[in-house]
């Protein structure tokens, strides 16, 4: 990560951690992140936006940080909103995993931490794989948006694939996070619902599984079987 992005992330963490309303986030100027420098903005790239939204998904999933950031681009279409949501989802899933690991390493049952039980270990391994997949999908989607200069048509494949992959991970991630937490995770007081409820909401927003599966499936049908591989390799690597 570049030094500039590290600084951006430090700022985002400072502003977003514990934030309860959007005003301080607005004051910090995040609406200008994606606005070009010659238009008075910060001229950030999509990977910068991804990094900030990842932190937002982790630390302040209830605040409309994606809307704020996209407002700098004027009226934007569904794929932009889907792309921003994927980054929020990656952050929120990472947070759900962190909370789950902390919980099973702390909570004792039958005389040992829950994390020492193989059944719990295997569940969390499954969850970690889903989170890693969404992290990779979100980062690769952001890289594609940067490579195409935010060209939503050129990046439509990656946005569809990333949002669909993230949507499909939501069921597994929220289910395992709640299962390993037991009753405490089902309380309003505990932090887990702060990320799992937004994840449930985001799965259906800006294109649910069926929507993006049809978009992507029809696009790939047009490419043909061999054409899919040629397209995959032409897009990355």
């Amino acid at each position: 990560m570049s030094a500039a992005r590290e600084m951006l992330c430090d700022t985002a963490r400072a502003v977003l951690s514990g934030a309860t309303d959007i005003a301080p986030v607005e004051e910090a100027g995040f609406a200008l992140l994606l606005v070009p420098e010659d238009e008075g903005g910060f001229g950030g790239d999509w990977s910068d936006a991804h990094a900030v939204l990842h932190i937002a998904g982790m630390a302040a999933p209830d605040l409309p940080v994606a809307d704020l950031m996209l407002s700098g681009l004027g009226e934007v279409s569904l794929p932009y909103r889907a792309a921003a949501t994927v980054s929020l989802m990656a952050g929120a899933m990472g947070q759900a995993l962190s909370l789950s690991i902390d919980h099973v390493n702390t909570r004792q049952q039958f005389g040992r931490p829950l994390g020492k039980f193989q059944a719990v270990q295997q569940s969390l391994a499954v969850m970690a794989c889903e989170v890693a997949a969404v992290e990779a999908a979100a980062a690769a989607m952001a890289a594609r948006l940067d490579a195409t200069g935010f060209d939503i048509d050129a990046a439509s494949f990656e946005i569809a694939a990333a949002k669909l992959r993230a949507n499909r991970a939501v069921g597994v991630v929220t289910a395992i996070a709640h299962q390993v937490h037991g009753a405490i995770g089902f309380t309003r007081e505990y932090d887990l619902q702060r990320v799992t409820i937004p994840l449930m909401r985001w799965r259906g927003e800006h294109g649910n599984d069926a929507y993006w599966a049809q978009v992507l499936g029809r696009q790939v049908a047009g490419l043909g079987g061999r054409g899919l591989w040629e397209s995959l390799t032409a897009r990355t690597g």
Partner: peptide, 17 residues
């Protein structure tokens, strides 16, 4: 089409990983 879409999202993600 839906199945092709789902499998495509998986294979694209796996290739990145």
């Amino acid at each position: 089409a839906g199945l092709i879409g789902e499998l495509t999202a998986e294979i694209w993600t796996l290739r990145q990983l």
